[in-house]
Design a protein around this nucleic acid. Structure first.
Lengths: 161, 161
DNA sequence: TATTGTTATACTCTATAACTATA
DNA sequence: TATAGTTATAGAGTATAACAATA
């Protein structure tokens, strides 16, 4: 069935009639496209010294500054143990501050530093430009449709667990 | 702008008019959905002792047995150095054989073992079933459409580089 | 008791680069 | 010279589990 992640011209059997065939085909196409998209993003962000995960942390904080490490772990779908390492790395880079929560001395509140805001302001437009180069291949109507389909699929993954 | 990988209910600004807004929105939705899909797949495959990358190796070999490590590296979009480790792991598990190429004594030809074929036959239906549970959320017509959009997007990522 | 964050450990995947043995 | 595979090294990300401090 060819590599799930890639393959020049996958010679999948023609399965035009059976929806099950389309499900597999779409699953593969999804992984394949995403794999490439992620690489391009990593390249673009890498030029600013950011990994995708780090960009994700900064973007999440920009959206909700002052959250705890536990909250960040939930939003990023990783364990709190992993967040320690993530914040360590992004903290030594000088982009994020841990500040003890005055009301709960177990918790840290996370804030972007000025440098963090700057690097995000620098990287985000490049991210957006990449999105434009890729997703510009679709018409506005197709984009709206794709967005709707993805939302429904994401809801389906949530029902999974 | 919320986590790129996840967020319960992302409160992105409404950008119904500007296609650039949709591009960003779709990019985020794509990463978010894919992230969850990949986790579900990892769970399903993990129950069979397989990682996603290992499943990918087995599925690729099932599709084109006898390829070299270099060819596998190209299909998987990883370096040949990484392939050594991948085949080491999948080889000690007894799923894949390295056989020296008689015509080119530098090269190895890769083959599935009987055990490799068995684990794949065991894991693949579960993979397909997962695909069905997720992508069954869409109608056959929507699946065909999504497949076409993804193909065009993948072509766009290829133009990137 | 439960929760927040930390630490320790281990594994997978990735990248770079130097190395070998062949071609 | 170029290619196939190996090795060494490094780093990011992930998971599990035990732990301290605090609630």
């Amino acid at each position: 069935m060819g590599s799930i992640r890639d393959s020049k011209r996958s010679s999948l059997p023609v399965l035009n009639e059976d929806p099950r065939g389309w499900e597999v085909k779409v699953g593969i196409a999804m992984l394949r496209f995403h794999n490439r998209l992620e690489r391009r993003m990593a390249e673009v962000l890498g030029a600013h010294g950011l990994s995708l995960a780090q960009f994700d942390v900064l973007a999440t904080l920009a959206h909700g500054e002052g959250i705890t490490q536990q909250e960040l772990a939930e939003r990023l779908l990783v364990t709190k143990g992993n967040v320690v390492g993530l914040i360590d790395r992004v903290g030594t880079a000088g982009w994020v501050d841990r500040r003890p929560d005055p009301d709960d001395r177990r918790a840290n509140r996370l804030y972007l530093t000025e440098a963090g805001r700057e690097i995000l302001a620098e990287a985000q437009p490049c991210q957006f430009a990449l999105n434009h180069r890729i997703f510009g291949a679709l018409t506005p109507g197709e984009l709206r449709l794709l967005s709707e389909l993805l939302d429904r699929l994401e809801r389906a993954t949530q029902n999974e667990k």
